[in-house]
Amino acid sequence: MDFDLKRLGFTLLGLLIVLNWGMLMSAIMRKVGARVARRYGIPWYQPWIDLVKNYALRSQITHGIMFYLGPVFRISGGVGLFLFMPMIIGSELWMNYSFQGDLVLLMYFQFFGMLGMALGAGEGGHPNSAIGISRGLSQFTVIEVPMTLAIISLAIQYDTLSLVDIVKAQQGGFQNWTVWTNPVATIAGMLALLGALSHSPFNLVKAPNEIPIGPPTEYHGAFLGVLRTNAAILHVVEAALFMNLFFGGATNWFEFILKTFLIYFWSVFVGVVFPRFRIEQSVAWFLKIPLVFGILAIILYM
């Protein structure tokens, strides 16, 4: 593979766009939540101020090497997912490095940040971190099952594991999108997405008001800034993955922003309607409804 400076530049520019869009999107969604609760809510630029403030805190303490590496692993999970994600289909420059990796790699990056965070937060030593980690890992394990089944169903349908090929097969009109050609896998995937974006009812990992903030209890200052940066990137990239898998990808930035917004809004919409599940309810739910759809999707396309 030869080194291409232009491609690298566009990838970094794309990362910047995705980061800022993620921040704006999280602010919009918090405003949506506030309006549902009949509040005015935060200003739309609040996430940027919070980020600057967090990076500008003067004193920081550490609990050890893994405590440092936890946020680093987390952000490499988010950025790694971004690097191998095709952003704009048909554009040579906005495809990132998606030709070098396939869906299995993307699935791995989804889990990678979580594991790194578990190690780092574990060294923080706070009991709430440990509870949050055990909840997070058990929930993510059951999310992976229907999500993987949906992706395997797509792999059988399109006869490839390359995300680029799957998106390219969906071009040429909305009737070619996977949501119409394989609705059962789409249902399984979109239900699994609710857990992956960890809004209510599946927000028991961080569970504000319950186990104060879960894994990042001990994280502060720049550590927390890195985690928040990653959260902004990850939300957009996660939505982009599902856009590419089920909703035909995007051919320009306007389409990208509209589709990621709607996919993210799906989890927020469910979140403001339903209250939080307990961990055993959440695990049981994922092993009931989305798993059944996932298995059906496999059987139908076998």
Binding site: Y40, I42, P43, P212, I213, T217, E218, Y219
Partner: peptide, 17 residues
Amino acid sequence: DAFRFGVQSRPTPRQSN
């Protein structure tokens, strides 16, 4: 609605000002 003024609550002393 103190969120309007950038006031938010945090559950852990490490993250609060």
